[in-house]
Nucleic acid binder design. Structure first.
Lengths: 203, 203, 203, 203
DNA sequence: GATGAATGAGTCTTCATTCAT
DNA sequence: AATGAATGAAGACTCATTCAT
């Protein structure tokens, strides 16, 4: 029987998480101090620690939360029927990811890079990420199967390989966009279309 | 005698850089202490600092070095004439990157993630990376032009878009491979081929 | 209704004190947090603080309480008439102290060590202890006088010295027992008896 | 090949240990902060931590050191031949312990209480103490055997019991002296003598 | 009265960097 | 030139206590 309502708790949690992301993104995961986050959230150290028992937990929660946000945003794209053609779907997914940048102090692409990097040395985080990317890739594989039925993908191709390729493209878009900043989802879509054979015996 | 001294210096430098990467990779950039590196290199603090005036410089040098290694490895692939078809070239590039893992304590993919992450908050590092990836992409663009001439890429496609797409695929392969560990260059190559139209009535 | 309320208060007080001792003993005075005690007592922070205004007060109360318990237990031994011989009395006192260990989570010997240590830096606590040990020693001195009258102690001996010696033996039994764990009251009793001269030409 | 000589290292170590004891004794083990000790030693945090990797290690070292000091002081007493009578030996041991108070800011009796208390919750410390008190008691037992041969102790008494009793007396002297402050070694010696039979029919 | 969320000063400890030897 | 001991400013986290509800 908490003195504080569940909504209030959830709101506080979100408040902390947002303060965390704002700083994480600006300074990186390790260069951000708990004090930065604490001040950013306008709370006391004890309060923040009552929600997240350690910095590592806060990082994990922040990443998990972000991943959940992506899932919510990208999920519908994969659900749409009829299923868009591969290049369209890829564009939609990348556009959904890019749209996340909208929120002030929250660039999902930069955040993704931080999370991937951290996952290299944090087992819990790596498992969390696997738990996100593997199912996501499985859904891409299902889509690939559908495309084969629709004649949009070679019937003898491996749906698994197609899924890996699309995932690579999406992840690579994030990296390239974060590092070089001059890439739009449509660029990739057009580039992919262009990679189909270029002569008239072709497509 | 300056000659020998220079060789010594270069050897020492390499020794430090290798000790750095070994640790960086295992523990991440920030969790690795100068002391780890100093001990790993078997030198004294003063010695290491005489080669690299700060940890940031060491990180920058390490990344620059790695990037140079990739350039040396991947460059020939882009130079080959006749130019391999897109899916072949992509496979070769990714295979070259993956081969870098051979060295003990040196997984280029993991290292790449660390560097990208750090580049988010380190301007010098970001510029260094731009100075590497942008020219690399320019060479891919040149290749795309060649493919168009060879009829392997749509004549109306933008070579720039194709280059961005291929770069995305390569970078995404690195991410996916580091995070999920179950991706081979050939998978992407096949997936890319499969993404061409599935029947002759095409798309 | 104040009657019931008073009983309740006393019960609560005892409940808190027992929770405190249980933890104090396991973790020491300082490593035990108020939160440990609060949770151990199954109460709220506010509730505990309404009984004891500070941790120091709680410690003082706990020690005072324990000391009172010893007094109740050991007192009758000193009251018994006819007065037992010195070695018998010492054994009885030590046995009474040792018997306090019976209660789960409550080893009087360990508690004594904690209290003595804390008394080094807490004046109130030291005074409380003096207020206990000094009268206790005075009663031992009275007993020594009786023993002299009974011919069990040298007539020219100082009753005060005998009291100090017996107190030392009892306190030392507690320390030795807590630290080494292989001492029984009877051991000391026999050892004391053995320390008398070994032959009739005596010393 | 250290830059600093072994003597210098040992001196620094001692300097830290003395600063530690001075504070420990005044404020107790836990109320003393590392910063107190660091400032007391006139060093930097890093320097102190390079000698003692944690507060716990420092505490353990301080106690171990103290115990060693006692051993050096009390040892000769037990070695003396001919062996003094029990009450004389007890006095000598207690006098040796009390003499340790001489050093400014270093009262062995208070320190002993702190150590015993801490040993309740620190296994390494407890083992260290056992490693000190058990052999000490064994030497007392050997002395008791000698006394029996000399007719100063009952021939049928257990030397082990006599050793336990003497150890109790010494430890109890320390406690009583630290808590009440009005006990001298000679008091205990006389008290012990007085506890022998008081009439000519003896015991 | 009771609750338990919140406070924030205070702890231990680390680590990039320097500089006397 | 080389060494490695020393520095000391942070940093993560704790916990006795309070007070709004």
């Amino acid at each position: 029987m908490p003195k504080i309502s569940d909504e209030r708790r959830a709101a506080r949690r979100k408040q902390i998480l947002e303060a965390a992301w704002t700083r994480f993104q600006k300074q990186g995961l390790h260069a951000t101090t708990m004090d930065d986050i604490i001040r950013g959230a306008g709370l006391s150290a004890g309060a923040v620690y009552s929600y997240f028992p350690s910095k590592e937990d806060l990082i994990l929660a922040a990443v998990t939360d972000s991943l959940g946000g992506i899932r919510d945003l990208v999920g519908p794209t994969l659900e749409a029927r009829p299923l868009p053609a591969p290049d369209v779907l890829v564009t939609q997914i990348m556009a959904a990811v890019a749209s996340f940048t909208a929120r002030e102090g929250y660039d999902l692409r930069r955040i993704a890079l931080l999370g991937w990097s951290e996952a290299q040395r944090n087992d819990r985080l790596r498992e969390t990420m696997k738990g996100f990317y593997l199912p996501f890739r499985a859904r891409l594989e299902a889509a690939a199967g559908q495309w084969q039925a629709d004649g949009l993908v070679h019937p003898q191709a491996s749906a698994a390989d197609v899924a890996k390729t699309i995932l690579a493209m999406v992840l690579g878009f994030v990296v390239q966009s974060a590092l070089l900043g001059d890439v739009e989802p449509a660029d990739i879509s057009r580039g992919l279309a262009g990679l189909g054979p270029g002569s008239d015996r072709a497509r």
